[in-house]
Design a protein around this nucleic acid. Structure first.
Length: 419
RNA sequence: GUGGGUGUAGCUCAAGGGUAGAGCGCCUGACUGUGGCUCAGGAGGCUGCGGGUUCGAAACCCGUCACUCACCCCA
């Protein structure tokens, strides 16, 4: 038997309603906030991701699905979508467009990681990118969209955390200050953190080991090293969030994994997901468009993990099954008449189905029940001979006889009339 | 990449060396043409795979693969 690839999952029909609920909400909220859909390729030239995400990040160093095209060029399955959206923004000169440059996307991403709860090799993200505005209001608009979208789904235990990473120039200075603080305390840190001092000192602040946390309690804070401009920006973001009554916590330890983030960063976490507690995250990335060869353009965005949302989605929030007419045609004449009736019903826009495997009326009715059909058409040889059919309402068990000739239109009016 | 847990019927799980089982689901019948409920019957398994120990292995040992959780990292 050929099996699917590790960390790559099928979504079976039974699970689709919850996915459609999530994706439907994502589209609805995007449009509410004036974001328009954009679709970019699932694979791009490798260099795009190396340049945007950061050559020395884990994603680029060891998690990308990279392969050689037939002409020898290096291509990569997208590990995230911002890079591709920015590329398209530059390539099609969307900066010159008079309409707002706010986009959303929905689709699969690929990272070669060891699968785990809430983490797959092919996973799906919904994200938005807002280009062209450096205003703190643009940050807030994106955060508000994320927060209201997640809240609307009724996800439990959500927390919004906020931090500022400062302008591009602020981070190196802070990094140096942090390393200077950590070095003398190295003994008190866990193995991982000792390594992190060299590889990624900001991550030490994020460590979950309690002793590390107490050790770093008095560490210099990134927010104390912000330039006046960055400080002002951050304060404006916070004031606006307050005025919208969007609850958040300041988390000076909040750090982003991707290199391109600047100024505002945020993350929505939950207590209901196990180890992978990040549901969605994002921030401002004012330098990225320029880094990728475009005009200097401010931008903010976020991405959320749809599998993680799906894991948390309360049962009640998935909509009930759609309405259906089940046609139970049995016997030689009945089956033939049933096939014709199905065709007519569908032509008239009535969702209808049958089961060609079942031959007895009992088995057909059982199937109608399982599919939660609203009506079942009973159509055997006797009915065909009499030129009628029986229409059974599955819940009330009421049955009526209808002339075969007029059956499809009268079922259609009955079925399609508003409740 | 590292560590732990688990692999038995479609699903959830029993059997801890002596004939592979239950519940749910599925099919059939009771109800000669009327679903759900009830009752009765039935189908469905190389116990992940390969080796080893043993008179005898689902069980014990070795290997391997898969799934899963966690670390790392991230959405």
């Amino acid at each position: 038997m050929i099996r699917g690839i590790k960390g790559v999952k099928d979504t079976l029909p039974d699970e689709m309603p919850r996915w459609q609920a999530i994706e439907g909400a994502a589209r609805r909220f995007s449009h509410l906030y004036g974001f328009r859909e954009i679709r970019v390729p699932v694979f791009e030239v490798t260099e795009l991701f190396a340049r945007s995400i950061g050559a020395s990040t884990d994603i680029v160093e060891k998690e990308m699905y990279t392969f050689q095209d037939r002409d020898g060029s290096s291509l990569t399955l997208r590990p995230e979508a911002t890079a591709g959206v920015v590329r398209a923004y530059i390539e099609h000169n969307l900066a010159a467009s008079p309409t707002a440059q706010k986009f959303y996307y929905l689709g699969p991403m690929f990272r070669h990681e060891r699968p785990q709860a809430g983490r797959l090799r092919q996973f799906h993200q919904y994200g938005v990118e807002s280009f062209g505005s450096a205003s703190p209001q643009a940050d807030v608009e994106v955060i508000s969209l994320l927060w209201r979208f997640l809240s609307s789904l009724g996800l439990p235990g959500l927390t919004l955390e906020l931090n500022s990473l400062g302008e591009a120039g602020d981070r190196p200075a802070y990094k140096a200050a942090l390393v200077a603080f950590l070095k003398p305390l190295e003994e008190q840190l866990c193995q991982n953190c000792r390594r992190r001092i060299e590889t990624n000192p900001l991550r030490v602040l994020d460590c979950k080991v309690p002793t590390c946390r107490t050790t770093t309690d008095s560490a210099p804070k990134l927010t104390d090293h912000l330039s006046p401009f960055a400080q002002q920006h951050f304060e404006a973001v916070r004031a606006t969030l307050d005025s919208l009554r969007i609850p958040y916590f300041l988390n000076p330890r909040l750090v982003r994994g991707l290199d391109y983030y600047t100024l505002t960063t945020f993350e929505v976490t939950t207590t209901h997901l196990g180890a992978q507690n990040a549901v969605g995250a994002g921030g401002r990335y004012d330098g990225l468009v320029e880094v990728l060869g475009g005009p200097k353009t401010p931008a903010v965005g976020f991405a959320v993990g749809l599998e993680r949302i799906s894991l948390m989605l309360p049962e009640g929030s998935v909509p009930a099954a759609t309405k259906l007419v089940f046609v139970a045609g049995f016997g030689q004449q009945g089956m033939a008449a049933g096939v014709r009736l199905l065709d007519e019903l569908r032509f008239l826009g009535v969702p209808s189905d049958t089961d060609f495997r079942a031959s007895s009326l009992k088995a057909l009715l059982r199937q109608a029940d399982r599919l939660h059909a609203d009506y079942c058409v009973i159509l055997g040889d006797d009915e065909v001979a009499a030129g009628t059919l029986i229409l059974r309402h599955m819940q009330t068990k009421e049955q009526q006889s209808i002339p075969l000739e007029k059956a499809a239109p009268s079922i259609a009016t009955l079925f399609l009339k508003p409740r």
